[in-house]
Design a binder for these strands. Structure first.
Length: 443
DNA sequence: GCCAAGACTTGGAATAATATTG
DNA sequence: CAATATTATTCCAAGTCTTGGC
């Protein structure tokens, strides 16, 4: 125990010198500055490179990027030295090396999400998503019109944009053969979509991280017809959108709004959904009731974005344990009620399970106990429902990446909910830029 | 237009730390 | 106080999108 603590402090001391960077005169926290240890590549889903050896990264693999006059960070391994030291102020990375599994890819050291640099670009991301509010009406009108365009490419762009908007699908870049076989909107295959009369579409595909997207939705009739037409004469494995890729799609989107790309729709839809639900469903009441509303809104967003998690191994055990506890409480509740009846009739309380005599309690005291127990049961039942409800839903990703923090901060200010009930330490730091938002901010 | 390189954002699981409970 | 449950942190990717060369 003592050893562990000492070891941890030792490690911290060792690493301290790599944890900070001076950027434009300001001390900022550095993000992930450790290289990964050697090991076997796992990857996610059915990855062709599964099990490949991931070699050790040495200082001679690492390129450093610092100011011209900045002191070069000490190389942590005596006798070795950095591959290169650059002075590029057009990029934000502090160091990079080639990914040992795929030499074409890079691993970067960036500033921490809590840094002002990242905070600024985070804010810009949400401002862009908010800008989409002013354009979305026209954009929707335009793609609706193009559902029936004579131009096949136009029709595909229109339908793809519709899916990205309505279903929050990812753009879907092309992938190499040595990567897991997953798709996004532009890379959907014919077999990933089933038309179900009269106008529904059943989606089933593996998306990012090989997470399955399964959803059946009613769509506008022209979309339904267009999909059937895109599928006509093709095999299951053929591209649904054969005249489309992400660069064409994004080029088109940029004509509709400056800076617009496919991912902006995810941010926009996530944030506006949170804002809408919070403002529709929040009632006067205590903090815990308001938190339930927030969690519900958060869950809706996670479902839209298909943020899933695997059910924890101990989920069932935890549930039955809760059941057991509730059962026990219901037993004592029944006993209390019996005793209350008896006491009111001037009889002594029943003996307990062990045959022992119980203390004589006044009816008032018994009533109070009954109320307490009932409340406890209700709370546990609510907890259980929430637990079951959220067992496959991951709430964290949307909080970190998709929900404009100013929505949450302003809502907390309006409804006197302590922000710490919703944002943990990491999020409070990451969203420092959003803290002074006005209480009446709306996305 | 297309492709590859490069840079930056988004992602769930595993693990560690902490809180809760019996 | 030990066993468990919960939460925070770390880990290790896997996406998106831009740019620059042809």
């Amino acid at each position: 125990m003592q050893d562990k603590k000492a070891l941890q402090e030792e490690k911290l001391k060792q690493e301290e010198k790599y944890m900070w960077a001076i950027v434009d005169g300001v001390k900022e926290k550095v993000g992930n500055f450790r290289v990964e240890p050697p090991g076997l590549f796992r990857g996610r889903g059915e990855h062709p490179k599964l099990g490949k050896l991931k070699r050790r990264i040495r200082p001679s693999d690492v390129t450093i990027n610092i100011g011209k006059d900045a002191p070069i960070p000490e190389c942590p391994i005596p006798g070795e030295s950095w591959k290169e030291v650059r002075h590029d102020n057009m990029v934000t990375w502090l160091a990079f090396w080639n990914d040992p599994i795929n030499q074409k890819l890079f691993k970067y050291v960036f500033l921490s999400p809590s840094s002002s640099l990242k905070g600024q670009s985070d804010k810009e991301k949400y401002e862009k998503a908010r800008m989409l509010k002013d354009y979305i009406g026209n954009i929707r009108a335009a793609y609706t019109k193009d559902f029936t365009s004579k131009d096949g490419a136009k029709r595909q762009i229109a339908v793809a944009t519709y899916l990205i908007d309505k279903l929050a699908l990812r753009a879907g870049n092309e992938k190499e053969d040595d990567e897991a076989d997953t798709v996004g909107c532009c890379t959907l295959k014919v077999e990933n979509v089933q038309a179900i009369a009269p106008n529904s579409l059943e989606f089933n595909f593996l998306g990012k991280d090989s997470i399955r997207y399964e959803n059946t939705v009613e769509v506008e009739v022209p979309v339904y017809k267009a999909i059937i037409q895109f599928q006509a004469g093709k095999r299951g494995n053929d591209d649904l959108f054969d005249k489309l890729d992400t660069s064409k799609l994004n080029a088109h989107l940029k004509e509709l709004m400056p800076g617009l790309t496919a991912k902006v729709f995810r941010t926009y839809n996530a944030s506006i959904t949170l804002d809408n639900i919070l403002n529709k469903e929040t009632r006067e009441g205590d903090v815990s009731e308001k938190l339930v509303v927030y969690q519900h809104a958060n869950k809706e967003v996670a479902i839209i974005c298909n943020h899933q998690r695997t059910v924890s191994k101990s989920h069932d055990a935890q549930m039955s344990k809760l059941m057991e506890k509730i059962g026990g409480l219901q037993g004592t509740l029944k006993e209390l009620k019996t005793d209350l009846d008896r006491v009111r009739k001037g009889k002594p309380p029943l003996e307990d399970a062990n045959g022992k005599r119980k203390r004589n309690l006044t009816p008032e005291a018994l009533e109070k106990k009954i109320a307490n127990t009932t409340e406890k049961i209700e709370k546990m039942e609510a907890d259980m429902r929430t637990k079951e409800d959220l067992k496959t839903v991951a709430l964290g990703t949307s909080k970190t990446n998709y929900l404009d923090p100013r929505i949450t901060v302003a809502w907390c200010k309006r409804h006197e909910v302590p922000l710490e009930k919703i944002f943990n330490k990491f999020l409070l730091e990451k969203f420092a830029w959003a803290m002074d938002v006005d209480f009446d901010f709306r996305f």
